[in-house]
Design a protein around this nucleic acid. Sequence first.
DNA 1: CTGAAAGCGCTAACAG
DNA 2: CTGTTAGCGCTTTCAG
Lengths: 336, 336
Amino acid sequence: MSMVTLKDIAKVAGVSYATVSRALSGSSEIGEDTRKRILKLCEEMGYTPNAVARSMVMKRTNILGLIVASLDNPFMSELTTNIEIYARRCGYNLMVCNSSYDVDLEKEVFTLLVGRQVDGIILLPISSESYESLKSLTAQVPTVFISENLQDLPEDYVAVDNRQGMRIATEYLYSLGHRKILYFGCRSHSVTHRLRLDGYRQACESLGIEADVLYSPFSRSSHEAGYQLADEYFSGEHAHTAMLCATDSLAIGVMRAAFEHNISIPDQLSLMGFDNISFAALPPINLTSIDQPKQQMATAAVDLLLDRIAKPEAGHTSVIVPPSLVERRSAKQLSE
Amino acid sequence: MSMVTLKDIAKVAGVSYATVSRALSGSSEIGEDTRKRILKLCEEMGYTPNAVARSMVMKRTNILGLIVASLDNPFMSELTTNIEIYARRCGYNLMVCNSSYDVDLEKEVFTLLVGRQVDGIILLPISSESYESLKSLTAQVPTVFISENLQDLPEDYVAVDNRQGMRIATEYLYSLGHRKILYFGCRSHSVTHRLRLDGYRQACESLGIEADVLYSPFSRSSHEAGYQLADEYFSGEHAHTAMLCATDSLAIGVMRAAFEHNISIPDQLSLMGFDNISFAALPPINLTSIDQPKQQMATAAVDLLLDRIAKPEAGHTSVIVPPSLVERRSAKQLSE
DNA sequence: CTGAAAGCGCTAACAG
DNA sequence: CTGTTAGCGCTTTCAG
C-alpha cells in the first residue's frame, strides 16, 4: 500500500537516497533549498517512513511493551490510558498484552515482547510473587513495575504510598467521630496490601483506638469477595460504626451486602475504599476513597523506564507517589 | 541485551545460518537430527528471534493497530481486552492508541500506525463522521470499524443490531405492563443512535403505544448528560412508568436524578439501558440492559480484518451481531 | 554539502 | 538436505 520508499523519492528528486534520509531526519548538514524541495516531494508522493526499517538499523524500535493483568479492570485501564498518551508524547508507541492474571501467560507475553524488540516494558498490577517468575526475564530488557510495591527487590517500580493512604483514611474516619473501625482486607500475600493494613494499624495505634481486621480468603479483590465477607459479618454481631476496605471493589461488594441486610450507608455505617477507581464516582455508588494518582503514576513509570533505557546500568529506583482523600458520600460524621 | 543472533548460533553449530532459520521456521526440508541439535542450541544460548528483522523481509509485521477513543470507557476496554487476547491467539500483537475523542488526533495516530507498518487497523468507537476524515487513510491499509454502524459506506465493520436491541428492550418493558415508555436519546448525528431510536419507534408502532422521545443536547453519552436531562424531566410533569435510555451511561445519570427527586427505581419507575457495560452489573447499580456481545464482536472484528489482509481487494463486508436482554433489577412488572 | 557503500537480522530463492 | 547470496528500507560512516 504505502509502497513509496526513500529510493523512489530520491530517484524523482535526482539525488541519492542518503540525501533524502538526511532531509527527513532534519538534522546534520544539508542545503536548505534541497531539503525543502525534498520535503515537498515526500508530501506530494505520500511518503511515510518505514518505522520497521528504521528500527532495524537504529537497533531501537521506540515501542514500549505494556503487560496488564486485564484491561477490564478500571484501575488498570485508567493507568493504561495515561501511559499510552504520555508515551506517545515521548515518541513511543505501546504494545499491549493482557496476562489474564496468569503467571505463565505473563511470562509468555513478556518473552513475546522481548522478541518484538520493544525498548522497555511496563508491568502493571502483577502480584509481587510474579516478580520471582520473571526475574530472569527482566534482566533482558529495561522493565518497570507499576502499582505494586516491590520494596527492596532489585527492580524499578512506581507505587502509591499505601501505608500513608490507609493512615489518611483511618484518621479521616476518626475525625468523623468513628472509634470502632473495621478493616476489610484481602490478598494477604501482596506487599501492597500488607502496607495498607500496616497503615491502618499504625494509625489506630497512634490514635489510641482498637484495630480490628477481617480478611477475605479470596485471592483477588473483587466485589464478590467483599460481598461474601460482609454478608457473613453482617449476619453476626457488628458493633463497628465504620468500615475501611482495602480496595474500592471490596467496598462495592460491601454495599450490596449492606443493602440486603437493611443497613443504610452512610447513615448506619460509614464505608471507605481505596484506589478511587472510576466506578467510585458513579452516582449510585459515590464512594469515599483514597485516590491513587493514576496520571502521575503513569508519567512517572514512563519517565523511569526511559531513564533506564538511556542508562541500562544505573541503580534501581522507585518512585512513591502520594495518595489523597476523595470525599464522597459513603462516610459521614458519626451522630451521637 | 538479547544479542544472540541466527549467525551466532550458526557459528557455534557449525552450519550456515540459513539452516538455522529453517530449523526454527519448522517447515521445509531439514534433517531431524540437525534440527534438534540446533533447537537445543538456541535454547541453551537463549536465542530469541528478532521480529523486526523478520518483519522487514516478510513485509508484514503481524501487528494490528487499535485506535480507541479512550480506554477509560469500560465498553471500549472490554472490547479491547477481547481483541487483544484473540489477536494474540491468531499470532498478532496489538499496538494501541487513544484518540481521546479528537478527530485530528485520530487521524494522526492512524498515520503513525501506518508508518509502523501494522498489517491492519481496528477502529473502535469512532463517531460515524470521523469516517469522512479518515477516508483517504483507510484506503492505505486494511481497516475495520467496530461498534459503529457504517451502513452503506464502503468499509468493513462489525456492529450490534442496534435497532433490534431497542425493539427487544421496548417489547420487554411492554411485557412488564408498561405502556408509557419514554426514550432518552443522545448523539443524534450517530447512525448507531439513530438505529436505536428507530428500533424504539418501530416497536412502539407495532405494539400500538405512543412513542415519546427526549434527546440530550450533549454530544457525548455520559452520566452527566443523563443526569441533566433527567433532572429537568423530573422537575416537570412526568407520567411515564418506564424509561429507556440509549446507553447505560445515560441510565446511570438518570439513577442519580431519580434519587434526588425521591423517585424509587424500580418501584416508581422502571429503567433500562443499552450496552451492558460492566458498570451495569455492579450491585448498587443493577441495571437491566441490552447486551452487546463484546467478545463476539471482538473476534468478528479480528477475523474480518485478517480476511481483509489476506484478500485486500475483496468486497466490503459487515457483520451484525445479535443483542440480548440482560434482566437485572432496574425494571419490574408494573403494579396496578 | 552530497554520493557511495556497508550492514542491521532475517528469509527465500537458487544452487549444490 | 544444506550452503550461498541477494535483498527488505533505512541510517551512517567515509569519501569526494
